[in-house]
Nucleic acid binder design. Structure first.
Lengths: 129, 129
DNA sequence: TGACAGCTTCTACATATGTAGTAGAATTAC
DNA sequence: GTAATTCTACTACATATGTAGAAGCTGTCA
């Protein structure tokens, strides 16, 4: 599932708490976003068509909830990026991150933690196109 | 600098070796991409307009070379992704990668290496919007 | 000195994306 | 119970993106 930039905004707002009305979502968008109410409705309709959210009605008011999980959205966004910009490999991607972006000591520790933690379990999850 | 999906394809082909002609770029695209020659020219023109590549002429033949570096393109793609999908923070992004994607032992080792390597030098590079 | 083949620039067009207005139905507020 | 408010469903429209055709140059090979 591929989300556009505007759709990410809506989904981020929706993931934070749901079910939610369009009005509530409007209230949760970043301050620098000032979309008309109908713009939000349009996005919500498109996301519903895409099966990323589900709409139900309480009276005549639409209640929205995510079908696509944040985790899945993140996963596929990362996969696209890896394919597109890093020859499909996560290794170089992470390497790039570690090398390029300065991490705080705490972040590094957490990462080390996560890295060694994962050591026990193995998985054959392959990423393909 | 924001590249579209199609533009990434062209740029990937161009970064691999340049200067290059449109014909050469065509030859380097992934097998599953079969764009008309003029499609490639169109992309190249758009990338030139965007200042991502520079065109020069050898006779009447266009020679292209990247202005935007792969590293910079990767950096900004990652930044967008982080902002869009991970609340602007690289830490969680990496954490997600480490937790979600199964890395080979070698990759982990390289990462650990990279993580501890970076330890000496510090940097104040902050990522903002 | 043409006939081709390959290159170039322009133009075109469908679909996707961002953003919102309108008009009518439902709800709320006196 | 009527006016103001708030929703909802449709429609609209500009710009971005993917993809390519047409027509005119240019160089080359017989």
């Amino acid at each position: 599932m591929k989300l556009t930039e505007a759709e990410w905004q809506i989904m981020n707002a929706l993931w934070s708490e749901w079910p939610a009305t369009a009005r509530q979502i409007a209230g949760r968008l970043p301050d620098d976003i000032n979309w008309a109410y109908t713009t939000i409705k349009t996005m919500l309709t498109r996301l519903t068509d895409k099966n990323a959210v589900k709409e139900s009605k309480k009276g005549n008011i639409g209640l929205y909830e995510p079908i696509l999980t944040r985790q899945n959205a993140q996963r596929s966004a990362l996969k696209s990026l890896a394919n597109q910009a890093f020859d499909g490999a996560f290794g170089p991607l992470m390497h790039f991150l570690v090398a390029e972006e300065k991490l705080s000591g705490k972040q590094k520790e957490e990462l080390l933690q996560a890295l060694t933690e994962g050591e026990q379990k193995d998985g054959g999850k392959e990423q393909s196109k």
